[in-house]
Amino acid sequence: MPLTTIAGLEIDLVRKRMRSLRLTVYAGGRIRVAVPLHTPAAAVEEFVQARHAWIQKHQQQFATRAPRPSLQYVSGEQHPFLGRLHELQVTTAPGRPRAWLDEATAQLHLHVPSESTSAQRAAVLAAWYRQQLKQRIPGLLQHWEPVVGRQAASWGVKQMRTRWGTCNIGARRIWLNLELIKRPLPCLEYVVVHELTHLHERLHNARFWGLLDQFMPDWRTHKNELNQVLLGPSSHPDAD
């Protein structure tokens, strides 16, 4: 797609059916701005110009980040869980593949067939991560919904490349990124509160951030921690 120059920056501008403008900075420095179909050029220019410093900051962060190591799912690798690294111990044995955490030794154990590939081992560990995250969400909602004063009608977990969480306001359904189970628990709590707050206010405006200050005064600490993480190979993640 051809780039256009906006506010002195090369921008991948996309017009589509949506309610608000959205900005994404990708690894390598590419900038994508998605806007509603009939947004005036002047409004797009103002939107980009207001975020010029934010764009530069994240481009610099990407430039200094080391690439994530390529995982082979073999013994000795370090894998995160709730903000801590755990050594992986792989045992090849017949039977149903499974993963489990030995809290006494802080080791993640993976039992898989001897002929299993790294992709198959990754899938077993991902299933365990998903189970662990799903076990924690009901308790967090039970705690935070009275604080926020809103209830989610339903929730789900999925792998997302550019968002830690999303909220379907009409359906009152929140989605949480599977990767959150690898981060410290307060980061997961922040995303839960963030998405519940959208049931008060759709937009990321002054009212939204003011409500978040009220519900979780230290949210900036957790957001900043998540901002240091490169979710996928090409984008800077955020809660939506």
Rank of each mutant, 00 (worst) to 15 (best):
Q72M: 15
M18G: 04
S70R: 14
H198A: 02
A41R: 06
H194Q: 08
W155Q: 07
L37N: 12
Q49S: 15
G83E: 06
I169H: 09
Q60M: 13
I31Y: 08
Q159D: 14
R150H: 01
P184I: 08
T162Y: 03
Q61L: 14
E46A: 15
L3M: 10
T117D: 01
R30A: 15
I6E: 01
L141K: 05
P113C: 02
L23H: 01
P186C: 12
V124L: 05
Q135A: 14
A27C: 11
R173G: 01
L88W: 02
Q151D: 03
G165F: 00
R68C: 02
V193G: 02
L3K: 12
T24Y: 09
R163V: 12
E87M: 01
G170F: 06
A206S: 12
A41G: 09
T5R: 14
L180M: 03
Q61R: 11
Q59W: 08
L71E: 07
I181M: 02
Q78L: 13
L188H: 00
E179D: 14
V147S: 03
M216L: 15
L101V: 08
H222N: 06
Q159K: 13
K57E: 11
L176Q: 05
A50N: 04
G76Y: 00
P217D: 01
A53C: 05
P146R: 01
R51Q: 13
L185M: 10
P186N: 03
G28I: 05
L21R: 15
H204Q: 05
A106G: 07
R98M: 07
R30P: 02
R22Q: 08
G8N: 08
A123C: 03
L101R: 06
R84G: 09
Y190S: 10
H52Q: 14
Q59R: 09
Q107W: 00
Y26I: 07
G8M: 02
E179H: 14
V33Q: 01
R161P: 01
L23T: 00
L231Y: 03
G210M: 02
Q49G: 07
V48Y: 02
T4I: 12
V191D: 07
R96G: 06
Y73E: 08
Y190K: 06
E145K: 07
E115Q: 15
G165T: 10
P184L: 10
S234H: 13
P67N: 10
V44H: 04
H109T: 02
R30I: 11
R30C: 11
D102C: 09
G8F: 06
F208D: 06
A27F: 14
P237E: 12
T221V: 15
M160R: 09
R136G: 10
R68G: 10
E145V: 13
G149Y: 00
N205K: 11
W164H: 03
E45G: 08
V25F: 12
Q59S: 04
V90A: 05
P146V: 14
A63S: 11
R161H: 09
T162V: 12
R202K: 12
S116T: 08
H111D: 14
G29A: 11
N205D: 00
N168V: 04
